[in-house]
Design a protein around this nucleic acid. Structure first.
Lengths: 270, 270
DNA sequence: ACTCATAAAGTGAATAGATCACTTGATCTC
DNA sequence: GAGATCAAGTGATCTATTCACTTTATGAGT
């Protein structure tokens, strides 16, 4: 009936998702080749590519030139950060931190109530492993906050926090790199962990609020590079391999979004 | 210079985003035609299409066959729901409601503290306009919760709630359609609005928690179609009308009225 | 046997040039 | 002036190739 109101390539994308699901493919598994898919669905390769590109944008599939197409981490993710964001100003980072300030304390409280053992273990690991190199600390922190959300037992909550942390990840790196007190960060993480471990929801909530409050202060103190000059700054201080290959289970590579590069930042925002 | 490890179409996608930004294009504005873009960037049309498809996936652009390519609502959105989700079970809907139960009370409290006037007005409209037809009520409810988040003054918070509401939108429609008490829903909305209007953060938080709690009960009571048979089941028991597909436009205003002739839409005129 | 270079096959990336379907607006009736 | 008609522009898709990269199996050379 109302079947194909969808464009061919849209329908194709859905069909491919269907394949991933019915064949129980998980991230990392290989997909049939473009040519195979084209034959199977009786369309041409450019059409298949369009469908795959579309899925790639949300992380459902990944391309590896010369090797094949693989299922990506987005295949089991419900929320995600827009990978194609324009400009970033201090305001946008501040807005992000303030959003986290509203949401994460509640998440911490939920985590302290549920305390999923596995996630609590990861939480401890993320708060114990201390003071690593520069870059590492941000990743550590991301791990901590994600593990915190995971401890709530609600995967969607974890995804929400993950997605939030991915927004403006680049700018967050910049700020933390320059202004954040890693020692204090670490100490606060330890305190939050203890509260969660002890099942003290009230304390977990309050401590998380204070923790993010101090991050907020750091952002306010930062003389964030204004739009227009922001290209150089981030290009040489943030090497692009922040990527994903190392750690185990839930590492989603928060910072790897896309190193845009490309020059000619002419405009001034607003 | 710009270490281009990116595929050509990835780079192209970023360039197009750059165009949208530097030319100050807003949702609804037309983009150059595929052929033009191909010429301008000296690539072929299939390559341009790949880039555009990728952007389409996140709502940054929209295609209109025979007419052109337009800027979409996603161009100014940082968080979004994965448009390619597999199966939906009762568990997943329950998980969603419980995530909202954790997050939204805090959002409501923030809203009561900030009370952005414009958003509060929309909040009142969404809670006053009572008991419309079946389908309409869900949309009304979405409007309410989004306006609530918007009243916090933090756009990212609003986007987070929007994205959350888009997840499993179809299943949510189904459940509300069958199990939810619209009258009670409405009454609770009115109470929450009053609390926000009066700047009573504590009450707003508690009322929102209770409100979502009752929605949670409705979900628990629902005998939702189980996984496995849902392939066919979903297709014919949930026609694809108000679901996820057109949840987007509500923010951009323009296209909203088209869906039903019910009118009375609080004009979002521009 | 073992190591290492190398060739072959498979795959994604992109090109080139068309054809068809749809929308839109201007022209042409009536 | 209202409506039908037509043509230009645009997206959607196809057919046919070529190039670049990865992986693997082959086959020296040691």
């Amino acid at each position: 009936m109302s079947r194909s109101e969808l464009s061919l390539s849209e329908h194709l994308a859905d069909s491919i998702v269907e394949i991933i699901r019915t064949e129980r493919l998980v991230p990392g598994d290989a997909l049939a080749s473009s040519r195979d898919l084209a034959r199977r669905f009786d369309v041409t390769t450019p059409t298949v590519r369009e469908a795959l590109r579309r899925l790639e944008a949300t992380g459902v599939v990944e391309f590896r030139h010369g090797s094949g197409t693989y299922v990506g981490p987005g295949s089991e993710r419900r929320l995600l950060a827009n990978p194609h964001l324009p400009r970033g100003s201090r305001e946008s980072v501040l807005e992000l931190v303030e959003a986290r300030l509203v949401l994460e304390p509640a998440v911490a409280a939920a985590a302290a109530r549920t305390r999923v053992p596995e996630a609590v273990a990861r939480l401890e690991a993320a708060s114990t492993n201390a003071l690593h190199p520069p870059q590492e600390s941000l990743r550590q922190s991301v791990h901590f906050h994600v593990a915190l959300a995971a401890a709530s037992g609600n995967a969607l909550l974890r995804e929400a926090v993950e997605a939030l942390l991915q927004v403006r990840a680049r700018e967050q790196v910049e700020i933390r790199h320059r202004y954040n007190d890693r020692a204090r960060d670490h100490a606060e993480h330890v305190e939050i962990f203890a509260a969660v471990r002890d099942g003290d929801a009230e304390a977990a909530e309050r401590l998380t609020r204070e923790h993010l409050g101090s991050i907020r202060e750091a952002v306010l103190a930062a003389d964030f590079p204004e739009v227009g000059a922001e290209d150089e700054g981030r290009a040489d201080s943030a090497p692009e391999e922040a990527g994903a290959r190392d750690a185990g289970p839930m590492d989603t590579g928060a910072a790897d979004a896309g190193a845009t590069g490309a020059g000619a930042e002419t405009g001034v925002a607003r």
